[in-house]
Design a protein around this nucleic acid. Structure first.
Length: 143
DNA sequence: AGTCTGACCTGAT
DNA sequence: GATCAGGCCAGAC
């Protein structure tokens, strides 16, 4: 819906370029982008998980906002690998095409059913989890 | 400076 | 088990 008086093109945001005191995290956007880009192929994560990995400083909502610049972020952020807690492609409408998100996921080996991740829990990847080698299967229980 | 929205999450009813 | 409501932080007008 957009209550914007003049949607035009939403070209006001400019997250990139914004150093801060030299801290690793320039903007909260950067943090989200970093984690989003860290998502392995064929795997998906949730906004909440990213927020948690970001330092709790951000909330799940903020993560979604950061994704607003994902399309402009470079390299492009795999926002299609980010879904909500329900495993639904909530932001699919924000993509170039509402089906692009699903296509990308399926192209990576992720099974999408009805705009939702089929084995969401299976393909779910925790940004906070250590990238340890696959010594064992990641049996994670989502709270 | 104040207001409002926003790709969410969790708890409570 | 499903639905409602509140909360959260940050950017844009």
């Amino acid at each position: 819906m957009k209550t914007y008086p003049n949607p035009k093109e939403l070209s006001s945001s400019k997250p990139a370029a914004k150093k801060k005191t030299g801290s690793e995290s320039g903007s909260f956007f950067d943090v989200v982008f970093k984690i989003a880009r860290k998502i392995p192929r064929g795997r998906v994560t949730t906004y909440g998980a990213i927020a948690e990995a970001a330092n709790i400083k951000l909330t799940a909502r903020m993560v979604g906002w950061a994704m607003n610049g994902a399309g402009k972020a470079k390299p492009a952020v795999p926002a299609h690998r980010v879904v909500n807690s329900k495993g639904e492609l909530s932001g699919r409408s924000f993509f170039a095409t509402p089906t692009l998100m699903q296509e990308l996921l399926e192209a990576e080996g992720v099974t999408v059913k009805e705009d939702k991740i089929a084995n969401f829990k299976t393909v779910f990847w925790d940004p906070g989890a250590k990238p340890r080698k696959s010594s064992k299967k990641d049996s994670k229980k989502i709270s």
